[in-house]
């Protein structure tokens, strides 16, 4: 093997260690019998004790379920709004206020989360005082807040997909008598579906993951999973959090692998079809 080969393999190994050792150690310790997270109780381990406790904990399970619901709602909302914003930015040419819309739609990408969270909280409070809606803070306000920042990511994904899209397909549909709404539903949407789907997954993950913004806009009785974990850990790390984290990592890994495989297959097929439709694929 050449020295370059050694270097490459060494770099790969270092990278993997750097990324995955923390996660792996957490997974290993989730099977530890001892209550002390740093002491491996060799006599009684491995054990599923903390998984048992986890599934007995109403608080953690309830928070997890709430987080899933919020993430799903926020992702759906963000996908609808983000797709529309991406479409407008990519298709409607240079209209008045385009730069403003583009800047605002993508602002949450660079805005510190603390600022986003604080400004949303102020907005919700002011709104409640003025109109009585939204009533207090809770699931609704968390979802709206998550839509706000996830929207930015979806917009970017959809917009870049549309930029590589052959305009003449839409023109051909118009020419064949389809009204603009039909063109969108039957031509544009099916072709940008991979981007929309990955936007949804991205939004879901971002929402599932978020602590800072949620802290600001959550109310009593509406604590998402990351918030609960965060508060538990502050009182000392308890091993059932390890167990929970292990399950989450496994679920996410499965989801990501599945989504990657699906979108890569679809992407490849669409690219082939588009190339072919352009007439250059001889």
């Amino acid at each position: 093997m050449t020295s370059r080969g050694w270097f490459r393999n060494g770099a790969l190994a270092l990278g993997l260690v750097f990324l995955y050792v923390p996660i792996l150690s957490m997974m290993v310790f989730s099977f530890n019998h001892s209550r002390l997270v740093t002491v491996w109780d060799a006599a009684n381990s491995p054990t599923l004790k903390w998984y048992g406790e986890l599934f007995a904990s109403e608080q953690l399970l309830g928070a997890a379920w709430l987080s899933v619901r919020i993430a799903a709602m926020a992702a759906t909302g963000a996908v609808v709004l983000g797709t529309l914003a991406g479409l407008v930015l990519a298709r409607f040419g240079a209209f008045r206020g385009r730069a403003l819309l583009s800047g605002l739609a993508t602002a949450p990408l660079v805005m510190p989360e603390v600022i986003t969270g604080l400004s949303l909280l102020l907005l919700f409070v002011a709104l409640e005082q003025l109109t009585g809606w939204p009533e207090g803070r809770g699931v609704l306000t968390i979802t709206i807040a998550h839509v706000t920042f996830a929207l930015a990511y979806v917009t970017v994904v959809v917009q870049s997909r549309l930029a590589g899209f052959d305009d003449s397909l839409e023109e051909a549909a118009l020419d064949l008598g389809a009204r603009p709404a039909t063109v969108f539903l039957r031509i544009t949407l099916p072709l940008i579906l991979p981007a929309v789907a990955s936007g949804w997954l991205l939004a879901f993950t971002l929402s599932w993951d978020d602590v800072v913004i949620s802290q600001f806009v959550a109310g009593p009785g509406a604590s998402t999973l990351p918030m609960v974990v965060f508060s538990k850990v502050r009182l000392g790390v308890s091993p059932d959090v390890n167990a929970l984290a292990t399950l989450v990592v496994l679920a996410v890994a499965t989801g990501v692998l599945g989504a990657t495989a699906w979108s890569r297959r679809r992407e490849r097929r669409l690219a082939r079809e588009q190339r072919a439709a352009r007439g250059g694929g001889r």
Binding site: D166, S168, E171, A173, D175, A277
Partner: peptide
Amino acid sequence: TPPYERPVNMMFQSYALFPH
């Protein structure tokens, strides 16, 4: 008169066949 209401059809240079 928008394109979808004209008694005209067009064959595009790229053909613009719907790939899906």
